[in-house]
Design a protein around this nucleic acid. Structure first.
Lengths: 338, 338
DNA sequence: CGAGTCTGGGAGATCGCTCGCACAAATCCC
DNA sequence: GGGATTTGTGCGAGCGATCTCCCAGACTCG
């Protein structure tokens, strides 16, 4: 039909100024909530804005104000598989709820290894004011690259390598609590299916677990690493059972792996929790519906998203004395498996 | 430390022009891939861009060009629960892959009923060039509102009420194929757990199913509606079994409901597929891992996202003769349940 | 009571790009 | 061979905000 759709232009700031009987400058001050505006003027401007249905042009604001009023959520993972991940969904919800009301837009970007350069150049040239990183592998080249160009960044999950501000669940303490719980149950041979060695989350949960056993003067030699998939959890469990057929408890560093581990235990005729107690981590959607329902360490991923966003916006606002990193508390959720 | 982070400014278009030995205009033409640029000039500009690491300022482009170079993905659902939905994740992946390479950014927006006004006013004032809607309930007020302000919009899934361009799976044909399959298996009493009446997807799948049965001159009286949850599927199945204890096949209009329905069948001692054949819809992640693996109608949600995006961008580019709506093919995936 | 400070508000340059226009050079067509 | 067209290029006026001055009036104070 039409060659190009035409949008009705809407009023300019000038128009608002005229209606309110003030100057452009004053309207701008009101919009940006600056000081040195009389109550009269402020009200007049608000009234004019409401009357005209004025909405400031973001492009012009960004251009003149050297601010983009937008942040990027960078998902650093090739396949895009993360998007379906309940973890990611939770983070996204948190980010969104924290952003609500502020006039900051969220740009969703995915980074493939092939176009990292492009992404960095895009992010570096003022299109966004800062970035949230959700990176699933350990040592992502994106992290140092973004740090270098001086873009404010907050990582979700502790990144390995170069340190940037991050927010993470307190994986160490969570795993520690899991270990203590198993110890308190009177278990004698406690094993763990740990996460990948090259991810901070794997390392931190393993450290916490080991600490818990050493507190109780118990050996922590039963460690096998898995890859955060049910299959990986199953394979790891098989190896553990070979190493130590008499184990009576296992801490699995992710619910999703616990699913696989429990299948193996069932298959080998071990009763949960009578023969082998199982504790997971994450309190993901799978935990409550597993058979038996999984005792696990909860981390609040929505809160993670909220906190990341808060931290980034605070930095953008120039707030001083921000903690470089934040750990969110975890809690033990007791169900039937341990 | 610092009050406000400073970003290194990077080169302007003027700088690129100087290095390439041409004018700003020519650089602009090259960037926007316009005609009337000699090969020499084009190459010189590309070289200069690469050399300087130039990346055009989006805000300035948007301001001068009356284009935002961004589209919104509007998720119209209060709780944000959708985000974890594999359906949404697939769509998002598709959208992203279609956007790759084009210089169009994706803004993610969530619409609560409370701030619909704000959203519409935001979208209407030129911040984005168009919007993709993923709306989970039937008659969303957002649809007519956006249509009214003249913002190019493509809906994912056929919206009820006011017609806007949409892309959807061919739910009718898919359900028709499901019904035919059950008929071809020699089943005599075929029931359906349909979707909600107030959603197009529910209505369309039900129509297709009924058509399939009437083709075979069979009664289509065994219809109970569910709400696209496993529990809803379970309740619906119970009601169907009450109505007709002798049913020997059921078409469940969503895999997620089929899960609940199959639980009920198991619980009542019906063997699948010997006593009751079950066909689902979606081919979601649950289908293959169900017990028994679920025969289902596949819809390609990633393709849905891609097609929506393509349709929107084509409209923005002023392409003529675009189909108002598009239906994507579905296919029968035979597994063990039917 | 005049100098100094603080608060409120206006004028207008500026941000970095696109796009309309003018014009030159190359190509075409009879 | 000369006018009409097509192709290639540059100039400079905006786009719609912000933000840096600048100024006026109110208030303080020795």
């Amino acid at each position: 039909m039409t060659e190009t759709a035409k949008r009705r232009p809407g009023p300019r700031i000038e128009e608002v100024a005229r209606v309110a009987g003030v100057s452009k400058s004053t309207v701008s001050r009101v919009i940006n909530d600056e000081q040195y505006v009389s109550a009269r003027a402020r009200e007049a401007v608000h009234a004019a804005i409401a009357q005209l249905g004025y909405s400031p042009n973001q492009a012009a604001r960004a251009l003149a104000g050297h601010r983009a009023n937008a942040i990027a959520l960078v998902v650093s993972e090739p396949s895009g598989r993360v998007l379906g991940d309940p973890f990611f969904a939770g983070v996204l919800r948190g980010v969104h709820s924290e952003l609500a009301g502020r006039h900051v837009q969220l740009l969703l970007m995915m980074s493939q290894p092939t176009d990292t350069e492009d992404l960095v150049s895009y992010l570096s040239s003022g299109h966004v004011d800062g970035a949230l990183l959700v990176s699933l592998h350990g040592e992502d080249p994106l992290v140092p690259m973004l740090a270098e160009i001086g873009l404010p960044v907050v990582s979700g999950g502790r990144p390995l390598g170069r340190t940037v501000p991050f927010v993470d669940a307190d994986n160490f303490s969570g795993a520690l609590e899991a270990a203590r719980h198993l110890v308190s149950l009177g278990r004698k041979r406690i094993a763990t299916v740990a996460g990948p060695k090259d991810m901070a989350v794997g390392a931190d949960r393993l450290s916490g677990f080991k600490r818990g056993l050493s507190e109780a003067k118990m050996a922590n030699d039963l460690v096998v690493h898995g890859d955060f998939t049910p299959e990986g959890g199953a394979r790891a469990m098989e190896r553990l059972l070979q190493k130590e057929p008499h184990l009576d408890a296992v801490f699995v560093a992710a619910d999703i792996m616990a699913l696989g581990a429990m299948q193996v235990l069932h298959a080998q005729g071990r009763r949960i929790p009578q023969d082998v107690a199982v504790v997971g981590f994450d309190d993901s959607v799978f935990a409550a519906t597993a058979t038996p329902p999984l005792t696990t360490i909860r981390q609040d991923v929505e809160e993670l998203g909220r906190t990341m966003t808060w931290r980034l916006l605070a930095e953008l606002a120039g707030e001083a004395g921000l903690p470089p990193s934040l750990l969110l508390p975890t809690s033990l959720i007791k169900r039937a498996s341990a």
